[in-house]
Amino acid sequence: MRILPTTLALALVLPAALAGQARYGLTLGATGGTRLVTDRIFQDIEITQGLAPTVTLSASLPVSERERGGIEVALGFGKTRIKESGFPTVDGPDFKTLSITGGVQGPIISTLGWRFGAGLLKYLPEKEGIFRSGGPLLLILSGGADYRLPIRGPVGVVARLRYDYQRFNTDELQSSGFGRTQDVHRLGLGLGIEYQRP
C-alpha cells in the first residue's frame, strides 16, 4: 500500500529535480503513410493518404547519463484520395490525428540521436465519411532519429525523422461492417526548434 504514495512522491520530485535539464521542442513537418482502407464494391477501391502537415510538441528529461525519457504530442491534418478501378481518382474525406507517445532517446553520434517510443493515436471526428465518428484509441509504435544543431545558448534547431506503425480502423468503418484492421506505416519529417534549460 506504500507503493502508491512513494510512486506519487517520486513522480512529483523527480521532474522537479531534473527540470534544470528539461528539453522542450516544437517542430512543423509533414507525414505520409500507406493506404488506409481497401474495399470492394463491384471493383477494388483503395483509400490512400496524402502528406499531412504535422505539428509536434515534445518534452524530455534525462533518465540516465546518456538516455532521456520524454513525450511527443503530434497533431496531423491529412487528406485522402480514393482510387477505384474504372472511376476517376478523386479527393476523399479529410482527417485529423492526435497522437501522444512516450519514448526513450539517446545519442548515436555527435548531434545525431535515436528515439523509440509507444503511445496512442486517435482519428478525430469529422463531418462525414469514414472519419465521421472518429476512431478508437489506437496503439502506435514509433521510432526515428533527431539531428540537433545548437544555435545560441539553450536554443537549437532540430530535424526529426519519425516512423510509426498502427492498426487503422474507425468507428464508421466498424459500424459499416468492415472486419479486422489495416496495417498503416507512416513516415514523417519535421523541422523546428528546441530549448534546453541550462
Binding site: T38, D39, Y165
Partner: peptide, 16 residues
C-alpha cells in the same frame, strides 16, 4: 521494436 512491428504487420482490412 522492429520485431514487434514485424509481428503485428500482417493485417489487411476485410470489406463487408
Amino acid at each position: 521494436f522492429v520485431a514487434l512491428a514485424a509481428a503485428l504487420a500482417c493485417s489487411d482490412m476485410v470489406s463487408p
